[in-house]
Every structure is written in structure tokens, then in C-alpha cells.
Amino acid sequence: MTVYFMCAVLLMMGLYCLVAKKNIVKKIIGIVIMDYAVNLYLITIGYKNNGVAPIIEKTTSPELLERFVDPLPQALVLTSIVIGLGTLSLMVSMVIRLYEKHGTFDMSQISKLRG
């Protein structure tokens, strides 16, 4: 229960950073933190007490099979992490374009310069 609450706190830190900060790089950092929080939450809901990694060996007994943690959230998070890297590179290239056009990372300056 407390684990889930701390995941929510982490998510809120990312959201606050995304909403309140004026620097665009800080906004990217907020999105990255939110990404981490969601991934951590998905893994924690799949964890099971005395759980082991879901990898079968030749000596694995059927009793050990019952102790495997949930493989489904792991599969989803594995793809989510790489998608996070792809979207991060897209965001960074957008920020670089904005910097080239306006010469600053300050969001309020960029908004003022419009038009």
C-alpha cells in the first residue's frame, strides 16, 4: 500500500515539474520522472511475495513455477521503456529546434516572441 502511495508521490513530482517549471529541459525531466513512476507502479503490482524471476531452467520444479512473478506487466514495461527513449529523442530534437529559433530555453520568453 505504501509502495503504491510513493509511486503516486513520484508521479506528482513529475507532474509538478511539468506544470510549474518554465525551462523546457525541466519539462522534459518531468515527463521522464512520470515515465519512471508509471513503470515502477506496473512492476510493483505484478510482484508476489517470495517471487522469483520468470525464467525456467532445466531444474525448475512445478512448485517453483507457482512462485514466478507476473510476466505480463514486465512484457508491457519492457516495450514502454524503449518507447520512452524514442519519445525522449523526439522531444529533445523539438527543443533543439526551439532553441535554434528563439535562442533560449525559457518557455515564457518563447511564448512572448510568438507572432
Binding site: 529541459v25 522534459i28 525531466i29 521522464v32 513503470n39 512492476i43 510493483t44 505484478g46 510482484y47 517471487g51 522469483v52 524471476a53 520468470p54 525464467i55 514466478f68 512473478v69 514486465q74 514495461v77 519492457l78 521503456i81 524503449v82 520512452g84 527513449l85 525522449l88 529523442s89 529533445v92 530534437s93 527543443v95 533543439i96 532553441y99 530555453f105
Partner: peptide
């Protein structure tokens, strides 16, 4: 939490995030 696949991927991706953020911005 018993997820070595994701631990490896997160570790390697994190290195790339650090490099891209520093080098790019």
C-alpha cells in the same frame, strides 16, 4: 522485484538518456 530483463533494459536506456540529454540540450 524479480525482473532482470527490465533491469538490463532500464540500465542501458538510462545511459543513453543521460548522454542524449547532456549532449543534446
Amino acid at each position: 522485484m524479480g525482473a532482470p530483463d527490465i533491469a538490463i533494459t532500464q540500465l542501458v536506456v538510462e545511459v543513453l538518456v543521460l548522454i542524449i540529454l547532456i549532449r543534446g540540450t
